[in-house]
Design a protein around this nucleic acid. Structure first.
Lengths: 325, 325
DNA sequence: ATGAAAGCGCTAACAG
DNA sequence: CTGTTAGCGCTTTCAT
């Protein structure tokens, strides 16, 4: 068992209260002789304070849990977002409890139960990044009395996510402004996340009635980049495509290689990414997602909920195009 | 303030003890009528258990803190390692507290103090990933009474890290076996982490007296890949290098582009990475680091410390070459 | 089958 | 300047 204030008190020949006061430097409540005795005793015994009693007395954990995703769904989580969350929490003197859903947790959800981490209270509130299908319904139903904010998931309330529709628009307009006349959208993912739906929606809305090419593998088929380009490369070549918007860096990377190998240095390639996507000596024009900001805004939103505030309308953060050079 | 067992007890017209028993399903300690009353009351009030009291009574947090790195030093942390840590902790029913050192934390360290997260106890033990210079000395000095394990940092005790010397050997031998006669080592990093020292050491040891080329920017100069290849490309061309070992994917990526642009498809490029490094339709021969395993082994080591075991000799985990095809 | 008492480690409030 | 009391929410132990 750990060393307690009482142990130190006994060793120093004072009361527990005095030890507490000395260790917290509460000025004017102890003499210097007493202080030295206490510090010596604490050092000798290897005393370490515990955050638990204070948390219990105040009813505040000073901790926020982040449900990062799951093993099964392999949900992507942004390192920058974690960073933003951490730093925003730090400014509020809160700690970050990192959780990931495992198979048995998801089983619990499908059984109508929540994972232990959400059923028991270990934190003052929860941030949830993405979610498997049906998960958020369970969450909303079971966590009515508990502060929850969704990150990078499109919900009406208590949610912060990037404007993926705008991303599609911006990319199309950028390519158009650069003189592209045959613009293609390339993705290898089916619509399992709102960003996949929204980026294409924005892209098509910006295109209006102008012709666009869509390179999207049939649903259910998980193509590799290799397969995608073997099948679609010729089409890209023959269709006079001169500008491409890629869903993410996966597509952009191999499209760049393809272009290099086929002497298509004229092709303008854009994509969505956390930060400007570096390829070779420069970077591609990139619609950057404010993942750090999403983490930070999510924390602020959660803080207001923890403080007792009402549900808040979702925040949709703007995205922006970063051009090379 | 949160709903307590007492609130539920009052609402249901029973004692707190009965509520506790019902909610934990302690069989044979309550009648079904009582159970229904309690469950109804708990549901109505939105009762959520708290992990705090149990932790306090037992003196166990069921939580482990991970010091991931720092803002300043931009220490790299592996996502796979976090994953391994999380899952190993989960098997022990422990939670993961994620921390990152900020500027003021590091200032505290240089002042001879530890960051609050390490001074106060919020967890049963700490995993530390890498560290700024001088940091581990402070840590060792101040945390004598507290379980600590270092990850991906080369220490004598209580440490788990990959065999970077072996990585250098394996890479050299692989290239040699593939018929390469002029083998180069490429890095753009100075020796700020043991892996930088060790990979080159292993590489040189394997080469013995055979000639090797080293492409290492002068210390203090932070070259971009662009600068590196502009300056060194000609040297690579003229020196008949036919096989290259890259410190990590940064170098490998642009070397691949360089090779493609200069028609050097004969060049064999190897590197160190978490997983086989995909480039184009295939992947490069990659010396893979068992980051997940490091996380897992680190947790097991820490668990033994938490259970009261002695300091343990460092574990150096083997690395292996993954060939394409 | 149910309840009362006690205590985990700490510190606010009060007493001396 | 120092000490005593009490209580945060829960569960173990021991009655009833």
């Amino acid at each position: 068992m750990a060393v307690t204030v009482r142990d130190v008190a006994r060793q120093a020949g004072v009361s527990a209260m005095t030890v507490s006061n000395v260790l917290r430097g509460k000025a004017g409540t102890f003499g210097s002789a007493t202080r030295d005795k206490v510090l010596a005793a604490a050092e000798e015994l290897g005393y370490r304070g515990s955050a638990l009693p204070t948390a219990m007395r105040s009813g505040v954990f000073d901790t926020v849990a982040l449900i990062a995703g799951s093993n099964l769904a392999e949900l992507w989580i942004s390192g920058q977002m974690i960073d933003g969350i951490h730093d925003a929490l730090d400014a509020h003197c809160k700690r970050l409890l990192y959780c990931k859903l495992l198979a048995r947790h998801l089983t619990a959800v499908s059984d109508g139960e929540l994972p232990a981490i959400m059923r028991e209270t270990h934190a003052d509130g929860v941030l949830i990044n993405g979610q498997p299908d049906g998960f958020d319904h369970q969450v909303a139903k079971n966590l009515r009395h508990y502060p929850v904010v969704f990150l990078n998931g499109r919900h009406e309330y208590d949610s912060v996510y990037p404007d993926d529709v705008m991303a599609g628009r911006i990319a199309y307009d950028y390519l158009r402004d650069r003189g592209c006349r045959n613009i293609a959208y390339v993705t290898r993912f089916a619509a399992s996340h709102h960003s996949m739906v929204d980026r294409m929606e924005g892209f098509l809305a910006a295109a209006g009635s102008e012709p666009v090419a869509l390179f999207i593998p049939p649903a259910g088929e998980r193509q590799t980049e290799q397969q995608l380009w073997e099948a679609e490369g010729a089409r890209l070549m023959s269709s006079d495509v001169d500008g491409v918007f890629c869903y993410c860096q996966n597509e952009a990377h191999d499209l760049c290689l393809w272009a290099m190998q086929h002497g298509r240095s004229d092709l303008i390639i854009t994509l969505v990414n956390e930060r400007p996507y570096v390829f070779g000596a420069s970077y591609l024009p990139t619609v950057t997602m404010p993942m750090r900001g999403i983490g930070q805004r999510g924390v602020e939103m959660l803080m207001r909920r923890i403080a007792g505030g009402p549900s808040q309308k979702a925040e949709v953060l703007p995205v922006s195009m970063v051009e090379p050079g």
